[in-house]
Amino acid sequence: MDDASRTRSHDPREHASLKKRTQASSPVGRPTHASHEHASLEKALTPAIRAGAVMFASGGEIDKVRRAIASMLRGHALDHIHILVAHNALLVTVAHQGEVMTQVQSIDGHGVDFNKIAAVYRLAKKAHRGRFTPDALRAKVEAIRRTGHIYPRTLAAACAALACGAFAVIFGGGPAAFLVTAVAAFLGCQTRFTLVGMRFNVVLVFSVSSFVATYAALVLSEFLPDRQYAEMAAVLFLVPGVPLIDAFEEFIRGYVTVGLTRAVMGLMMILALSAGMVLALSLKGLW
């Protein structure tokens, strides 16, 4: 996300030579109006587009991302703000007094991090009221981008395990099914965090984690009368609920292209999850 590539409507070499010429002719060597305009546009645009990228990569829905970027740019009295969001890049064009600037920000990975979404949302609200200078805003966005997890990964895995155990009870299982599901889901979740930490591909992470969770659930629930609940619920921490809900919300709001890419990614994750489960069931002779 660091490598924001910046382009202008004019050729940069031409701009540099023009800047040199005008500065040479200026008796006191002050920056010209155009270069000052360019620098102020860049200062305004960079934190806004980076904040939008953080929000989108953390599972933010596209309409909120667009509105957050627009809010951050609102205090700069721009003539036009145009925002295009693709699945792996953000593109924003702004115009002020004839000067036009476009920035592209790549989005490297998608995940779910509501803490970052909340932080960007609050920052954008404050920026809309004009509370920050561009430099302060940039520093705050960078701080949000570098924020880590609030909860230790083991605690997060334990909470996901409890959630899966609760699902087993909601489906109709008893206390034993709750316990078995929770243990199996904990193992699966720890596998997922380990593989994500090792930067493996998301499809592989989902397959291996669902295999571990299902196999553990099958082994542990061997003597349970209601083992089907444990088998079904142990992998539910992997179901890509946020991308799928976001995808349908984007369809409803009219952002069909981004919605489609999110939905396809969600279905790919479910396919990977099912493949891992099928492998575990085959190994136990149940498929």
Binding site: K116, Y151, C159
Partner: peptide
């Protein structure tokens, strides 16, 4: 009541997994 209780447990578990702020 039982489903509501376990629904709350599941929602909290997923909220932690999604790195939701503590006060929420």
């Amino acid at each position: 009541a039982l489903k509501a209780f376990f629904g709350a447990v599941a929602a909290t578990g997923f909220a932690v997994l999604f790195n939701t702020p503590r006060y929420t």
